[in-house]
Design a protein around this nucleic acid. Structure first.
Length: 311
DNA sequence: TAAATTTGACCTGT
DNA sequence: ACAGGTCAAATTTA
C-alpha cells in the first residue's frame, strides 16, 4: 500500500497500523488457502502463520496506542530505512529531539516530545544496534522493573536513540520495547536483515532478507545469549534461552527468583522498527495451537473488519 | 584497564 | 506528592 495514496491528514501511526494490517493480509490468505489435512500434517508451519498474524495484531495495537507520529507525506516509510517516517537528516521543528541540558547531576530535559514507538516481542533478538543500559526502575503495577537503554554511540556520535524494555507478565513472558528517537549514528553492526532464532543448537541463525524475500543461513554469535550468560548471577533473576527439543525451537524462559523486579539487562534486542513484519513476536513460538484455533482465525472475519476501518 | 552495568540520587511532568 | 526518566559514581566484567 502506498503511503502517498492516503489522505494527508491521516495520522502516521494510523498509516503504520494500516501497513501492518496490509502486511498481514497475505498471511490470512495463506492460512485460508491451506487445506485442513495440510494444516494437520504441518501444524508447525500453520502455527507459525497464526503466530505471525497474532503478532501483527499486537503490533497494530501497539502502534495505535503509541505516541502520535507526525505524518510526513513525502518518502516511503518502508524503504526509507527509518521507522518513524523520517530520514536521519530529516529533523525540523515538527519533531524535536531535545538534548538533555546538563548543568549538574540529574539536571536534564526529558525528551517528552521525541518520537516513540512501542512493540511487543516474545524473543529479545539483536536488532543490530548497540545499546547500553543506563537505568532501571520499578514501575507501578508492574511485576518487573523497566530497563532503560541508550545508544552506545551517544557519546562518540551524539546518537539520541533510547529504548525501554518492560517485561510483561504474559506466559510466556513478552517484552514491551519502547523506542525513543531514532539512530543518527553509523553503527557497523546495523544490518537490514531480520534474524530468527535457529532450531539448530549449534547456534546457526536463519536470516530473512527482505530484499531477496528469501531465507539464508548465517553463522553468527548470538549476542543476546552471550549477554544473558554474563548476566547470570546468584540470586539474580535471569533470562535463559533454552533449546526445546520437542519443538525444535528456542524457548525464552524467565527464571525469576524471590526478587522478581530485576529481569534482564541485556536487551540489545528487538528486530528493527521499520521491518514491521515483526518476526520477533512469533519467531520462537512453539506448536501450541490446535487446528480449531487456526480454523477459528480463518473463519472469523476479524481481519476484513479491521480493513473496513481503513480509508 | 577500558567498557559495561548497577544503583541511588535527582530531575521533570502530572 | 508521586511516578517515571536520566545521570553519574561505584562496581563488575572482559
Amino acid at each position: 500500500m502506498e503511503s502517498s495514496s492516503w489522505p494527508q491528514s491521516l495520522p502516521s501511526n494510523r498509516i503504520k497500523a494500516i501497513q501492518e494490517l496490509t502486511q498481514g493480509q497475505p498471511l490470512i490468505n495463506k492460512l485460508r488457502d491451506m487445506r485442513p489435512e495440510e494444516i494437520e500434517s504441518d501444524l508447525r508451519s500453520a502455527d507459525g502463520v497464526v503466530g505471525q498474524i497474532l503478532g501483527m495484531f499486537d503490533n497494530t495495537l501497539s502502534i495505535l496506542s503509541s505516541t502520535e507520529i507526525p505524518y510526513i507525506p513525502t518518502g516511503d516509510m518502508q524503504s526509507s530505512g527509518s521507522w518513524d517516517g523520517q530520514t536521519s537528516e530529516d529533523h525540523d521543528e515538527t519533531v524535536k529531539t531535545v538534548t538533555p541540558v546538563k548543568t549538574k547531576r540529574g539536571c536534564y530535559k526529558r525528551r517528552k516530545d521525541s518520537t516513540t514507538y512501542t512493540k511487543l516481542v516474545s524473543n529479545p533478538v539483536d536488532d543490530g544496534y548497540a545499546w547500553r543500559k543506563y537505568g532501571q526502575k520499578p514501575i507501578l503495577n508492574a511485576t518487573y522493573q523497566r530497563n532503560y537503554f541508550r545508544c552506545t554511540h551517544k557519546v562518540d556520535q551524539g546518537c539520541q536513540a533510547t529504548k525501554q524494555v518492560q517485561m510483561t507478565e504474559d506466559k510466556p513472558p513478552r517484552y514491551r520495547i519502547t523506542y525513543n528517537g531514532h539512530h543518527t549514528c553509523k553503527d557497523l553492526l546495523r544490518s537490514p536483515q531480520i534474524i530468527f532464532d535457529s532450531p539448530d543448537p549449534s547456534n546457526t541463525s536463519i536470516i530473512l532478507n527482505f530484499e531477496t524475500k528469501g531465507f539464508t543461513e548465517n553463522k553468527q554469535t548470538d549476542t543476546c545469549l552471550s549477554s544473558m550468560r554474563q548476566n547470570r548471577k546468584e540470586g539474580f533473576p535471569s533470562l535463559w534461552l533454552k533449546h526445546n527439543q520437542s519443538y525444535s525451537s528456542w524457548d525464552l524462559t524467565a527464571q525469576v527468583s524471590e526478587v522478581p523486579s530485576k529481569p534482564v539487562s541485556v536487551m540489545s534486542s528487538g528486530v528493527d522498527h521499520e521491518d514491521m513484519i515483526s518476526s520477533e513476536v512469533y519467531s520462537s513460538t512453539c506448536c501450541t495451537r490446535g487446528y480449531d484455533e487456526i480454523d477459528d482465525l480463518i473463519g472469523n472475519n476479524v481481519f476484513s473488519d479491521l480493513f473496513e476501518l481503513c480509508p
